[in-house]
Computed example of a mutant assay.
Amino acid sequence: MFKYPKVNYIGNKEKIAKWICDQFPTDAETLFDAFSGGCSLSYEAKCRGLEIYTNDILKINYHIANALVKNNSTLLDKNDIEIIFKGEPFEGFMFKNYSEVYFFPQECKELDLYRQNIELLKSEEKKSLAFALMRRAMIRKMPYSRFTLNWDKIVQLRDEEYSYKKYKRRRAYHNQSFKHHFLQNLNEYNQAVFNNDKNNIAYNDDIFNLLETVKADIIYLDPPYTGTMNNYFGFYGLVDDFITSEVTKPFENNFVNKNSAIELFDKLFSKLNNFKYWYLSYNNSSFPSKNELLYLLGKYSDNVEVIERKHNYQITGKNKKEKNKEFLFIVKNENYKETIKENYATAEL
C-alpha cells in the first residue's frame, strides 16, 4: 500500500480519511473532492481504486493534487534536483516582497533562485512535485507551520535558545535550509506516486465554476469550517505568491465569514445535481450548526443522515480538543440522473 507523505496541512483529514472512505457506497466509481486542500482524502480514495477529480482554489493545493493524485508515474530524479538547486541566489520577487516579513533576506534570495529553476523542469508533474516539496520546506522553516505570524515573532521562535527556555525544545529544523528539507522529504514524495489505472484530474478553480462541468458518483465537500481558525489564504497564500511571483488577493466564496456562510452553503447544495452521493465534513465548533446544515440539506433531499466521531485538530487548544467532534453528512440525491461523465481539465496556472 502506498503512503500519503508528510504535507502539514491545517484541517487535513489524514487521520480520518479511511473512516470517511469506509462510508462510500460500493457502487461508486468516481469521486469529486471539491475542496481538496492537502489531498489526504483524495489520496486515500485513489488507493481504493476510485477515479479522482480534485479541486482547490489555492494554486499550491492544485500542485499537491497534480503531484500526488493526478500524477501516476512521474518522479523527480537526480538531474531534476541538480536543475532546481543550481546557480547563485538573487534578489527577485520573494526578496523584494518578503525579506524580513517571513524569511531572512538570504533565504528569500534562495527561494527566488529555486522558483526560477523549477520552471526549467521538463513536465508539469515534475514542477508540481517540486512545488509540493518546496512548500513542505517553507512550512518546516515557519513556526506553527502557517504564514500568519509577524516577523518579530518568527525571529523569536526561530531562536533555538529562546525556544528551549520557553518550550524545552530547540526546534532546530526551523533553521535548516530549504534544500535540506526538500531533500529530506524527496524519497517520501517520490514513493507516494503510483498508478491506479484511472484518469485522475486536478482542477484549480472556484468551486462554483465547476459544479455544472464535473460529474461524479460522489462529491466530497470539506470547505473551511466557518467560525474556526480557517483562513487558508492567510495560512498558505504566500506559497501561491511564490509560485506566481505576484502578490495574490484573497478569493471570494471562501466560507470564512459567518454573515455569508448559510447563503454560500445553500447556493452550494442547490447546484449538486451532477452527483449521486454527497458527503460533507464539518465540525461541532463551526457555523452553521449541525441542525442548520441538516435543514439546508433537507431542502434538496429527503435522504440525509449524519454520523460523527471524535477528531482533534492540532491547531485547537487543549480544552477544545476534548470536545471536538467531526460530523459527516451523507446525502443520497434523489434528483440524480445517470449521465455520461465528462470532465475537462480547465485549470489555468
Rank of each mutant, 00 (worst) to 15 (best):
K18M: 09
I154P: 01
N274T: 12
V193S: 05
L296H: 14
H63V: 00
K3W: 13
L133F: 06
S73Y: 15
L113I: 04
F251K: 09
A345Q: 12
L221E: 01
Y164M: 03
L297S: 08
V331Q: 00
E342N: 10
V256Q: 01
D240S: 03
L75E: 06
N12S: 15
I84E: 07
R48S: 08
E322C: 11
N196R: 04
N257T: 11
I16C: 06
V247K: 10
Y98R: 02
D159M: 07
F242H: 02
N257I: 11
H63C: 02
M94L: 14
I118L: 07
P89V: 13
T316K: 14
F95G: 08
K179P: 03
G234W: 00
F242I: 02
N97K: 05
K78I: 10
F90H: 13
N291G: 09
G298M: 13
K126A: 03
N72K: 15
L210Q: 07
P288A: 09
A216N: 07
D22A: 08
D197F: 09
A261C: 13
Y225N: 09
S260I: 14
K299M: 10
E188I: 03
C108Y: 02
I81K: 08
V331H: 01
F194M: 06
L349E: 13
M94Q: 11
Y300S: 07
P288W: 13
Y277N: 04
P105V: 08
F255Q: 01
Y313M: 01
S123P: 10
N283L: 05
K46P: 10
Y336E: 01
V193Q: 03
P224C: 07
L183S: 12
F265P: 04
L186R: 04
A28G: 12
V331I: 12
V69Y: 09
V7W: 01
M142D: 00
C21T: 14
P25T: 06
Q176G: 08
Y62K: 03
Q314R: 12
V214F: 07
H180D: 09
E338W: 11
F275T: 00
Y53G: 00
H63R: 01
K127P: 08
V193C: 07
F103M: 04
S163Q: 06
E342I: 14
